[in-house]
């Protein structure tokens, strides 16, 4: 399960150059948590997550929306991508920081939040 979460983050950050990205990463993370839920029960999975899933959805949306602002402040249209420096990483190659990455983090959180939220709600509904 930790492996799956780690893998989801790798997918997220390498998304810009290799197959991956926020959507896929979020789904992988959700699968991981769902697996945990099936194995140890939903309460355990909830504890593992620490925050309620709707929180993830809201935070993700907020991050995605905020990532559009830096471009706006530089006099460019909303959501214009701005890039900063980059660091080399082991699995994801050269990791560049920038607002699109931030945006992708938002997508990741929203997707993971929604999937987990649905699974939890359905699983508890018995």
């Amino acid at each position: 399960m930790p492996l799956q979460l780690a893998f989801s983050i790798v997918l997220l950050v390498r998304g810009h150059n290799e197959p991956g990205g926020g959507f896929i990463g979020g789904l992988v993370a959700a699968c991981g948590i769902a697996l945990h839920g099936i194995a140890f029960g939903i309460p355990a999975a909830r504890r593992l997550l620490r925050v309620p899933p709707p929180m993830l959805i809201g935070t993700g949306l907020l991050i995605a929306a905020l990532s559009g602002l830096p471009g706006l402040f530089q006099g460019q249209p909303f959501l214009t991508g701005l890039w900063g420096g980059s660091v080399p990483t082991l699995l994801a190659g050269q990791l560049k920081f920038g607002t699109p990455l931030l945006f992708d983090v938002g997508v990741y959180l929203v997707v993971a939040g929604i999937a987990v939220h649905l699974i939890f709600t359905m699983a508890e509904d018995q």
Partner: peptide, 20 residues
């Protein structure tokens, strides 16, 4: 746009507003 994965670049940069 600093990316080689076209699909993802479209999603998070070119058509970011749609994705949002």
């Amino acid at each position: 746009a600093q990316g080689r994965n076209v699909v993802n670049v479209i999603l998070v940069d070119f058509r970011a507003l749609d994705t949002l």
